[in-house]
């Protein structure tokens, strides 16, 4: 790892629509291993937020525990961050979102955090359709404890220790489809062209958006016998679509793509690749995930999207004002109301 942030910036870095440069979206220097896939994802988050002109302080970034969960320190310096406990980021994000519905919630998790210790919370945050973007930095192994298999490791896949994994893998995207997630995508940390528009779309999605990003661990799980290595993923990627994200203000012509309208006016444009499913069809999406997996391929792209399903706030019918902004006037029924309670208790 490096230990100095280079001061050099590309000369053509221009301010975005709200006057911020890309640098304003960066964070502290990464302490991950050189070449770690996670750093590429952080860079994709920076790029997506910069290009979307997101106000950094209106993002809350949350994580659990593990290599992946350290990364929120490495992007969006002006955002509040919360590195919580192992596997429990979804509940913290739920509470945070309920307190203030006006912020953007970005959760970063790993495969251990999501598919092992936090599988329960991961499942239930999807059931609640919490309005957040949940990125899994999926490397199939435990990095911080030196390379043990994680629950997303494929059967037969080997880490540097040389042991082949024996246990059936958890496929976060497949699970998400099954349990009712309203935005399910998969990508690869080595494919920024695909990842950046997916992040943009996920940030705009009015409910729970999952992006399962294959993100090779260069130190423990990047050997030829691993199915989460750079080489394997590149060779076995099967993109379902080409995704483009069009902000509300932009104009675009009709080009035969599937346009998915976001409630804020933005559009996700999807060009379906030949022989691929309609991403608005959950059953077809689940089928596509299964069949590509059986072919030994990794299906990437926007696998499923449904922007009509009510989010948690809508289901709870909470007020439009952030709950945290309410005071005594709105919240306290007052002394007189207590008299009635006392009367009924006599």
């Amino acid at each position: 790892m490096s230990y100095i942030i280079p001061r050099f910036r590309h000369p053509c870095t221009a301010p975005n629509g709200i006057g911020y440069t890309r640098k304003d979206y960066e964070g502290a220097l990464s302490t991950l291993c050189a070449g770690c896939g996670h750093d590429s994802i952080s860079a994709a988050i920076v790029q997506a937020c910069y290009e979307m002109s997101v106000e950094p302080h209106l993002v809350a970034k949350l994580s659990g525990i593990g290599c992946s969960s350290k990364t929120p320190a490495y992007f969006l310096r002006q955002s509040h961050g919360f590195n919580s406990v192992h596997g429990r980021m979804p509940s913290v994000a739920t509470g945070a979102n309920l307190a203030n519905r006006d912020l953007i919630y970005l959760g970063v998790s790993g495969d251990g955090d999501t598919a092992s210790i936090g599988l329960g919370q991961f499942a239930h945050v999807m059931r609640r359709n919490l309005n957040m973007l949940y990125i899994i930095e999926n490397n199939g192994c435990y990095g911080l404890t030196k390379g043990q298999d994680s629950a997303t490791a494929d059967v037969g896949s080997k880490t540097k220790s040389g042991q082949a994994n024996m246990f059936s893998p958890v496929d976060p995207a497949g699970l998400a489809l099954n349990i009712g997630a309203t935005f399910v995508a998969r990508s690869f940390s080595g494919d920024k062209a695909q990842l950046v528009p997916l992040i943009k779309a996920g940030l705009h999605h009015p409910g729970f958006a999952l992006i399962d990003v294959i993100s090779p661990c260069v130190t423990f799980n990047n050997i030829p016998a691993s199915t989460k290595s750079y080489a394997y993923t590149r060779e076995h990627m099967s993109a379902a679509d080409v995704v483009d994200f069009v902000p509300a203000a932009a104009k675009y012509g009709a080009d035969g793509a599937i346009d998915v309208k976001m409630p804020d006016g933005a559009t996700v444009k999807l060009r379906r690749l030949p022989d691929h499913h309609d991403p608005r069809d959950r059953a077809a999406a689940a089928d596509a995930v299964m069949t590509t997996r059986e072919r030994g391929e990794v299906l990437t792209g926007l696998i499923y999207i449904d922007t009509d399903h009510p989010s948690l706030h809508e289901m709870l019918d909470t007020t439009e004002t952030p709950l945290r902004a309410l005071g005594e006037k709105e919240l306290c029924p007052g002394a007189k109301a207590l008299e009635a309670i006392n009367r009924n208790a006599r």
Partner: peptide, 30 residues
């Protein structure tokens, strides 16, 4: 005016999530 709720109650999946929700909300000012 709107009849909407000035509160939110979530039955969590377990007690770990229940207190996680509390901590997330309190961190965010509620």
């Amino acid at each position: 005016e709107t009849g909407k709720n000035n509160f939110a109650v979530v039955q969590a999946e377990d007690e770990l999530a229940a207190i996680g929700i509390v901590i997330g909300a309190a961190w965010n000012g509620a």
